[in-house]
Amino acid sequence: MSTTAIETKVALDQALNLDTAPRKQSSVEVTDYNNRQTVGNITVDNPKMVCRGVNVYYGEKHAIKNVGLDIGANEVIAFIGPSGCGKSTFLRCLNRMNDTIPICRVTGQIRLDSDDIYDKSIDVVQLRARVGMVFQKPNPFPKSIYENVAYGPRIHGMVNDKAELDDLVRASLERAGLIKEVDKRMGEPGTSLSGGQQQRLCIARAIAVNPEVILMDEPCSALDPIATAKIEELIDELRENYTIIIVTHSMQQAARVSQRTAYFHLGDLIEVGDTDQIFTNPKHKLTEDYITGRFG
């Protein structure tokens, strides 16, 4: 904790620009000298995604302010914070879902492995195949369960024949822990499932294209506790194969599923750290206030 955050970031960006090879370690060490700076050691081994100086504007509104964050491979990182703090907005930057909103503008740098995802040479189609997403409300397509899962592989041309596709669909459903429940009803519409099953179907749909990162935007907020428990269990299993970034409204959920937690407040990234540390010993006053339920 010796230099200011800005200096650190500038230095690091320069280093990053020179070096395009995958890095084994990436680190931003920042200090807190006013409320607007992130605290915590955000060093990760084996970074999967690296964000530097990310700003998001909705028209005139400055929604994300100069956020720097590293996300390690095969970790589950949770974004928490009060509503409207920008955690979902930031999440949607990571697979450029904000592109669909005309007034939204993103500056700064976000890297997936060695690729700058906002670079012109990056195809958003390819990016989204690599960075999957699961939404707040389960949104199965109005198609059969099978077709829902087969959708991604089909559009990306991932399989050569029907048998391969069958295998892939079954394997994805299995990973999503849904295969037992839907084995006999693959032809039924996805919407005929219960809410929790629908959400797991959406997870199966996302992992069918074998992404590297899965973004989850409050995936359990529309579900009952039992369904939530199942999804949380699933997230824990998926960690083995994927990097998972989860936005959640529930601190308990963050504590249960994530290794690291990032706390956002009014567009600022306030604190990042190991989940245990954030919840037991927050370094920042705002984080503490939020954790202890003074607001939220």
Partner: peptide, 14 residues
Amino acid sequence: MNKPTPAAGAPAPL
């Protein structure tokens, strides 16, 4: 680059 380790019995395409 981090390759996902295949789950038991998962087919090749993944």
